[in-house]
Write a protein that binds this DNA or RNA. Structure first.
Length: 429
RNA sequence: GGAGAGGUGGCAGAGUGGUCGAUUGCGGCGGCUUGCUAAGCCGUUGAAGGUGUAUUAACGCCUUCCGGGGGUUCGAAUCCCCCCCUCUCCGCCA
């Protein structure tokens, strides 16, 4: 959510920045006008209430003295009626204003490249492309040959298309990767592991920005008004919903494994075979809370932690900085990590590392405050900045891993870093 | 799911319907005292919105907030209704 005051003070500036990410009419003028109306209504109401409050004791005094208080009572009655009108109107204006503000995207970061999907910037590439003295298979062939997962009817029968059943070594590989990532982040990168609910309420889904705009993307448990999490970002960022965090505790760093449930409503036309796009997948997510002035640095730190996952696994990848028009609604700036899949010869997005500045903090009302000190006797309560990044999203890592480490004998070598999490297993197959 | 108890400021814990944003204690911050430490004493210490002075650091005033939402009343932390949550006991269950 944007600061409505910023929007009011510098409408043109805000409009210009938002225009770099969307051509849609965001109704900024209407928002400004609603805000002005809101203020006027409140002022009128407050002044009336103030008058009524002063009248109260006078009424009591007159009654006590046995005098006629009817003139005063008539006035308080009139005020009360007007007050009710004003409050009803203010409620409507506020609801309308809130609804509109919740739909606005975040301001893009000033350093982010301007443009659309194709205007990304490649920040760096890591690792060399693997070479093969045979024709490498794609992951679908490998998964089927090694019986790592059920990709077809069996999975579909249980739920619907685009679900998968991991089997045998495939299930174990999944579990091993989750543990590998969690262990890496908790023991070497200083994250606190959390295991949150996989269902969240509407307030929580609004806090991180999934609602109201992206309702179509969520699976909903209608009987209970709950939503399946599309990413651990949602429950973990909202851990501090409505809180004022002591300043000395920042930055906070959490990692969490959850399955992620996504309807992929917009992607129906481009359904891909195999493991690349699923309605349910496993992911380890990293979430950080920090002071506003630290968030750019924190973003780089977070990016490094996500990259470490791929480096340990020895997977070739590139870091892509998305252009303003391609970054997610709430993100100010976003890096995608793309792993190379040599069998299908394509880059696969396995992580998205974003800074949200105070956009989510405003929605979820997450603030911080320093202790008073001699220099700052009255510290201000301020919105934190939130950041998150995948570290990493599993199925596509599995794809890259299988295709990268496949051998002529049909087996797949397990990268050394992962063996400890697979009971010492050296190869699949 | 059933019965009972309870939700008040960072925490603990008061609060006959009328200056109660709220007694008090602890904690925090500042100061005094002190050879040092401890103790003691004094002061200060929530959030949101609005508005004025003013300017980037603030200050004054107004309104709102005692789990959430309604209601009664000139006036509600205090009375009434609904909901949520926590605790205890019972039931059910991995």
């Amino acid at each position: 959510m944007l600061d409505v005051n910023l929007l009011t003070e510098d409408l043109e500036g805000v409009a210009a920045r938002l225009a770099t990410r969307t051509k849609a009419d965001l109704g900024l003028e209407a928002i400004r006008d609603l805000n002005t109306r809101r203020k006027r209504l409140q002022k009128e109401r407050d002044d009336l209430v103030h008058e009524a409050r002063e009248l109260g004791p006078q009424v009591a005094q007159k009654k006590k003295a046995g005098e006629d208080a009817s003139a005063l009572l008539a006035r308080t009655q009139a005020i009360k009626e007007r007050q009710k009108e004003l409050e009803a109107e203010a409620r409507q204006v506020e609801a309308d204003l809130e609804a509109r503000l919740l739909l606005l995207p975040n301001l893009p970061h000033p350093d982010a490249p301007v443009g659309g999907e194709d205007d990304f910037r490649i920040v760096r590439e890591w690792g060399a492309a693997p070479t093969f003295d045979f024709t490498p298979k794609d992951h679908v062939a490998l998964v089927e040959a090694l019986k790592l997962a059920e990709l077809g009817e069996r999975a579909t029968r249980l739920a619907r298309s685009s679900f998968v059943v991991w089997t045998g070594a495939g299930a174990r590989l999944t579990r091993g990767l989750i543990n590998f990532f969690l262990d890496l982040h908790t023991t070497e990168h200083g994250y606190v592991e959390v295991s949150p609910p996989f269902l969240v309420n509407a307030r929580t889904a609004t806090g991180t920005g999934q609602l109201p705009k992206f309702k179509d993307e969520l699976f909903t448990v209608t009987a209970d008004d709950l939503y399946l999490v599309p990413t651990a970002e949602v429950p973990v960022t909202n851990l501090h919903q409505e809180e004022i965090i002591p300043g000395e505790q920042l930055p906070l760093a959490y990692c969490a494994y959850t399955p992620c449930f996504r309807r992929e409503a917009g992607a129906a036309g481009k359904m891909t075979k195999g493991l690349k796009r699923l309605h349910q997948f496993d992911k380890v997510e990293l979430v950080r809370f920090c002071r506003p002035e630290a968030s750019d640095q924190e973003h780089q730190t977070l990016l490094g932690h996500a990259e470490a996952c791929l480096q340990r696994l020895g997977l070739r990848y590139r870091v892509k900085e998305l252009a303003t028009g391609d970054t997610g609604n709430g993100a100010a700036r976003c890096y995608d990590l793309e792993a190379w899949a040599p069998g299908s010869k394509e880059w696969l997005e396995v992580s998205s590392v974003s800074t949200f500045t105070d956009y989510q903090a405003r929605r979820a009302n997450i603030r911080f405050k320093d202790k008073p000190s001699a220099e700052h006797p009255k510290p201000k309560t301020t919105f934190v900045h939130t950041l998150n990044g995948s570290g990493l999203a599993l199925p596509r890592v599995v794809v890259a891993l299988l295709e990268t480490y496949q051998r002529a004998d049909g087996k797949v070598t397990v990268p050394e870093a992962l063996r400890g999490h697979l009971g010492g297993l050296e190869a699949l197959g």
